[in-house]
């Protein structure tokens, strides 16, 4: 895509997103969750797509951010907005710290062992939260009431999550275009080679997970307040739903690309909402079928398929040096 067209598309999408609450007020919350889904897919793809470490446990950072924020809001006694700000910061800090600690151990696991360990991590967090009385155990936590008119809360969090999505997208775009992106791609393609070239793989891997955890932590804090109620297994540490959806959305759109997760999340979220509306009761059966179909028939994803089909469009073409260079052979 030429740069100007890409920029126009981006601006158009942002304008559309800003106008959406007035265009389709009835779907405000659903679209808010679309932003959440896009953040899920984008942050999963940092490790899963760009670095080759398939994590089923990223939802832990989401949940930790959510609980961290809710505890601050409950216990500091501040007004709503200061408490929310502090809570989001604390939630993010907690998530990043956790990622740094866990990462130093878990990121030394390779291949499917990492996937399974993170799967275990996700479930352990959910079970642990359901047992811990300080955060409400199995009955969960309720976040403070939003101080405003009915409907204001939805608008506030709509724009907050939209802003988060945009920031996530641009931060990742910036990171992927620099050394960081190159290094984690190198780790994905051949970690032994990357080590043999002297790359500080552990530093890069841990940083990548921390970036992922940061955005998930902030998002978790916001989502806890949007929903208003935190259930340990179904909202915060929802491994079998959110945790797996992240993976699926990124794969569906094309993992290892910037736009793939955005595209995948959009398609998946709309499909999911349609299931919910038209297949009541059977929506989760349909979900299982969708997972199978994506994995079996679309392992490359939409953008991955397009890149396979038209490599030149993605810049992979033979290109001679314009000036007559001195060939060494």
């Amino acid at each position: 895509m030429p740069p100007t067209a890409s920029r126009l598309l981006l601006i158009g999408l942002v304008v559309l997103a800003l106008a959406a609450p007035w265009l389709a007020p009835a779907y405000r919350t659903q679209i808010s969750f679309l932003w959440v889904m896009i953040i899920f897919a984008l942050t999963w793809d940092i490790l899963g797509g760009q670095m080759g470490y398939n994590s089923f446990g990223n939802v832990v950072f989401f949940g930790v951010g959510m609980y961290g924020c809710a505890v601050i809001q409950r216990d500091t006694g501040l007004d709503y907005y200061p408490a929310l700000c502090l809570g989001m910061t604390a939630g993010a800090a907690l998530a990043v710290t956790l990622a740094a600690v866990l990462g130093s151990g878990l990121l030394g696991l390779r291949g499917h062992y990492f996937a399974i360990a993170t799967l275990g991590l996700g479930f352990a967090a959910g079970e642990f939260a359901s047992g811990w009385d300080f955060i409400g155990a199995g009955s969960g936590m309720v976040t403070p009431l939003y101080p405003g008119e009915v409907g204001d809360r939805e608008s506030f969090f709509y724009f907050l999550l939209l802003a988060l999505t945009v920031v996530t997208f641009f931060v990742l775009r910036r990171l992927y275009s620099g050394r960081f992106g190159l290094a984690i791609n190198a780790i994905r393609d051949d970690e032994d080679k990357a080590e043999a070239m002297g790359i500080r793989t552990t530093l890069y891997k841990t940083t990548a997970w921390c970036v992922s955890a940061f955005f998930l932590g902030v998002t978790g804090a916001a989502v806890g307040n949007l929903i208003g109620f935190i259930d340990p297994r179904d909202v915060a540490f929802a491994g079998p739903t959110f945790g797996v959806w992240m993976v699926l959305m990124a794969i569906l759109g094309g993992k290892g690309t910037l736009w793939g997760p955005v595209l995948g999340a959009t398609v998946f979220h709309i499909t999911q909402e349609l299931f919910w509306t038209y297949l009541l009761g059977w929506q989760r059966v349909a979900l299982g079928l969708v997972i199978l179909a994506i994995v079996l028939f679309f392992p490359l994803g939409i953008l991955g398929w397009a890149r396979e089909r038209w490599p030149e469009r993605f810049g992979h073409a033979v290109e001679e040096r314009p000036a007559t260079g001195e060939g060494a052979s």
């Binding site: 050394r179 190159l182 791609n185 190198a186 051949d190 990357a194 070239m197």
Partner: peptide, 21 residues
């Protein structure tokens, strides 16, 4: 061993000395 899913240029760019990074 090269990084198969990256372009040749990217393969080169990530191979810079890592000493002072």
């Amino acid at each position: 061993r090269i990084y198969g899913k990256m372009t040749c240029l990217e393969n080169m760019l990530i191979s810079v000395p890592q000493r002072d990074q």
